[in-house]
Design a protein around this nucleic acid. Structure first.
Lengths: 193, 193
DNA sequence: CTAGGGTGTTACCGGTCTGTAACTTCCTGA
DNA sequence: TCAGGAAGTTACAGACCGGTAACACCCTAG
């Protein structure tokens, strides 16, 4: 009742969705399981019947977020079937949409910052998911006919990662405001080689 | 005794230095004031006699870190007096040294990620300090004779910021490994315009 | 109709957190 | 020598944390 979460789905789904949202907004260490379950319209016992610990809930949230991001890549292919260069430009455009004023950045990168214990179980998941995303962008650049595909993909990755974290420090009027211009001119430059 | 902190300075200095180190390693929310004072060889009461709250300690730590970073710029000027282009290359080299294997990234950016409350007192300090650093890099690029100085400075900023956060997700063998190459080729490209 | 599983409720455990009070000890400077 | 302030010590308050136990409920499948 009175919560903005999906009205009447299964408790597990509500918990997962609410946790994603609250972890994103308030940070992982900034929100407790009690607050999550209350916002999800359920209770702590039900959470611990579906997830064996908060750490496992964190991991499931990261996987769910990555799955959502992965679906965006399908949109690129659907909108520009076969045209990999157009898909790369679509990636830039989509990335720029992530740089809206009050963005809290990338959940995986933020989690890596928050979870400082080197052996935290979420860290290997973060690494796997981020490496998978890198592979995708490299493949896209390569299939778009760019020579140094890895270097362009890595440069674009760092620019976006930097833009998303810079936004949280200095806001949307900082260096991240120039992201699209930087990315497009980089792509043009790599294509000219 | 038996702590790695400056052996016998004043308690306030020891607390400040220890807090910087521990906030950097374990994150701000990952370390309590008790742990800091113990590692600094003192106690909680003494901390609260010198800092009115943990938040104020955080702010002082960020200022101290920024002051250390600022001193590095003096080294650039000392090593390459008047030669702003050489100083820019020195900046790139110094930046690449921040990307060692187990780096925990930029304290200010990390703090911005951790402190999600939009009205947290540290946030405006972070913004001020980051904007000052941006100004410095813009001035360096401009004085080095680069036309689009702001754009180059912002691009380099995002690359470094991205590299430092990417390291925490995927390690030093990820995209950040190419930082120097990216930065140098960007500088060359901007100089050619 | 009934059995059983998913769910809700309440209370609790042990630990940690920031911050404070009251008191003692020690060192320094006049 | 002695006064005063800085620092150390101990104890505590009040809140929150992740996680568990025991029990009541309800809804549905057989």
């Amino acid at each position: 009742m009175a919560d903005g979460v999906a009205e009447r789905s299964r408790p597990r789904d509500r918990i997962l969705e609410t946790a994603q949202d609250m972890f994103h907004k308030h940070g992982i260490k900034g929100v407790g399981v009690d607050a999550i379950t209350e916002a999800a319209g359920t209770n702590k016992m039900t959470l611990y019947r579906h997830f064996e610990s908060k750490d496992e809930l964190i991991i499931e949230c990261l996987r769910a977020t990555a799955a959502k991001a992965s679906r965006i890549w399908d949109e690129f292919e659907a909108k520009h079937p076969g045209d990999k260069l157009a898909q790369l430009h679509a990636w830039v455009h989509k990335a720029s949409e992530l740089l809206s004023a009050d963005s809290r950045g990338c959940d995986m990168a933020n989690a890596a910052v928050e979870l400082t214990e080197t052996d935290h179980p979420a860290r290997r998941v973060i690494k796997e998911l981020k490496e998978a995303q890198r592979e995708k962008l490299v493949a896209l650049c390569r299939d778009a006919g760019i020579g140094q595909a890895e270097l362009l993909a890595d440069t674009l990755s760092l620019l976006l990662e930097g833009a998303r974290v810079s936004m949280q420090s200095v806001g949307a009027e900082g260096p991240s405001a120039q992201f699209v211009r930087m990315a497009e001119s980089l792509i043009a430059s790599f294509r000219a080689r």
